[in-house]
């Protein structure tokens, strides 16, 4: 554990909780992509199956349980409790275009051919692109609520902080996992456009709207 990894995890946690609280308080999931949320649920489920097979630390297990619970809680709010507020007309990204290639890639580039390792690798590849339906939705509607922007910023920062963590771990522990590093870089690059808009608009008190 180092400061970059901890900050990344806390940023990730903040993002997930921010989204849950936003939906709960406003009684609405308008502007949120249900498809991205489905992808994140697949990501956490396939990655955290190791809750049952290996123990790293109380911290790790606790965070995994929180991420899983919050993710399924978000899906419940979006597709059951506040379903009428779900803006599915603008959530039109075809997620099979992300699900299938990630799955194929996880069979081609993987450290070891075991079911658990392929599922873990799949979760890494899918996570890298899971935000695309949400970013697509923002580009289609041309705007995002400020709280949604904060959510996206926290979620994007998490993997960027993990990149610093991997650089740190490379020098201090000789840790080098190219699968997770390359996927993490791709994931962070996808947010760059949004980061720019966030810094130039949202942080200056303006609403995030596209020209």
């Amino acid at each position: 554990m180092n400061i970059f990894r901890l900050s990344g995890d806390l940023s990730h946690l903040l993002a997930i909780l921010l989204l849950l609280v936003k939906i709960w308080k406003t009684r609405s999931c308008a502007g949120i992509s249900g498809k991205s949320q489905i992808l994140f649920a697949i990501v956490y489920t396939t990655r955290y199956l190791d809750l049952f097979t290996s123990f790293v630390s109380v911290y790790n297990s606790f965070m995994k349980v929180v991420f899983l619970t919050a993710s399924y809680g978000t899906l419940y709010l979006m597709f059951f409790k506040f379903k009428p507020t779900y803006d599915h007309n603008h959530d039109s990204f075809r997620i099979l275009y992300l699900i299938i290639p990630s799955l194929v890639l996880s069979f081609i580039i993987v450290h070891v051919y075991t079911v658990m390792e392929i599922l873990w690798t799949y979760s890494i590849y899918l996570e890298a692109v899971a935000i695309m339906p949400q970013l697509f939705m923002v580009s289609r509607t041309g705007e995002a609520e400020t709280i949604t922007s904060h959510y996206l910023f926290a979620l994007g920062s998490y993997r960027a902080l993990y990149i610093l963590n991997w650089i740190y771990r490379y020098y201090t522990e000789d840790f080098l996992d190219m699968i997770v590093i390359i996927a993490g870089i791709v994931q962070t690059i996808l947010y760059c456009d949004f980061f720019y808009l966030y810094i130039t608009k949202v942080l200056k008190g303006k609403r995030l709207s596209l020209p």
């Binding site: 070891v112 993990y162 963590n165 996992d177």
Partner: peptide, 10 residues
Amino acid sequence: SKSEEPHDEL
């Protein structure tokens, strides 16, 4: 790689 060890990140 570290593939024989459990993944210690989230």
